[in-house]
Computed example of a mutant assay.
Amino acid sequence: MTRIKEVFREKSSPLLIACTVAGDPTPDASLQVIRSMIESGADMIELIVPNTNPVADGPVISRAHERAIRGGIGISGVFSLISAIRRESQIPICLMTYANPLIVRGVSAFIANAASAGADGILVVDMPPEEGELLLSQQMIDPIFIIATTTPPDRREMIGKIGRGFLYIVSAPGVTGKREHLPDDLKQRVIEVKKSTTLPVAVGFGIGSAQTAFEAAAAGADAVIAGSVISGAIERHPDNPDPYVREAIRSIRSGIDRHRFSRSAGR
């Protein structure tokens, strides 16, 4: 059983998937940030591979890409960071990347390096399933795909059948970043996606507070993904991000736990 499948089976949902740009603000500080996320209640780690043109990311995470690149991390450094985490923890680790790093290194080599380092899954933001034959044919790590707000039912069903690990549901149109509230139709979209797959569904984009974490959990998400709130904490406190990252994780966790409590109380 994979680490991703195991964590969904063993822990009470919704899980918290904590997301950070690998190497932000420096490789050493990034390792400590990830430790803080784990210690503060993250159930899974999503590591974003730094990129010079992160078109799906909002301004907060885009600046995190810039800091990580200035800090000196490269692709090999990302794999080294995963290896360092894996020596300390068996928490599931997913990579989120754009296609260019895979193309530069070679898809097969990238996947082999990621798996050897200890990664469990990979989401390539700008690589649709039709172009992901090598991702789908390998068995080393789980290929994870995105369900957008505009994904039609037939395509949603196709993605639900071929993905592994979990499906990533985008909560709202646009790029990553905090929102005051999630869209009213999110619950219905989660229901529709779950009709098309046996995989867990994770909701991301816009979750940066206890309230939005609660809303994602209440919509039926099996996992809640938070990233911009973590990158924002690092940006505001680059010399000592750990206590602020912990605070951010605990805030998101409190929203998830509020849903769990309200659900239990209603039984």
Rank of each mutant, 00 (worst) to 15 (best):
I225Y: 03
L135F: 09
G72L: 11
G77W: 12
A114S: 12
R179G: 08
G174D: 15
Y244T: 10
T2S: 15
I93D: 04
R236T: 06
L186A: 02
G206C: 12
L47M: 08
K178Q: 10
E133F: 07
S264M: 13
A223Q: 05
S40G: 12
R164V: 09
E247H: 07
E10M: 02
A56T: 06
E39V: 01
I91H: 00
T176V: 09
A218E: 07
P241M: 13
G163C: 09
R263N: 02
P143F: 00
Q138N: 10
P143V: 04
R267E: 13
A210D: 10
I147T: 02
V124L: 02
S80G: 14
T26V: 08
T150K: 08
V55A: 14
P241L: 04
I4W: 14
L134I: 12
I45M: 14
E157C: 13
A148S: 14
P238L: 07
S231W: 03
L31W: 09
I147E: 03
I103R: 12
K5G: 03
R263P: 02
V125D: 08
I85N: 06
S80R: 13
T151E: 02
Q139Y: 12
I252F: 03
R253A: 01
A119S: 13
P183D: 06
I69F: 06
A18G: 07
A84L: 13
G165H: 05
F110I: 04
G132Q: 01
V60W: 02
D142V: 00
I17A: 06
R250Q: 11
G177A: 08
S116T: 15
I45S: 09
D242P: 11
I38L: 05
L136G: 09
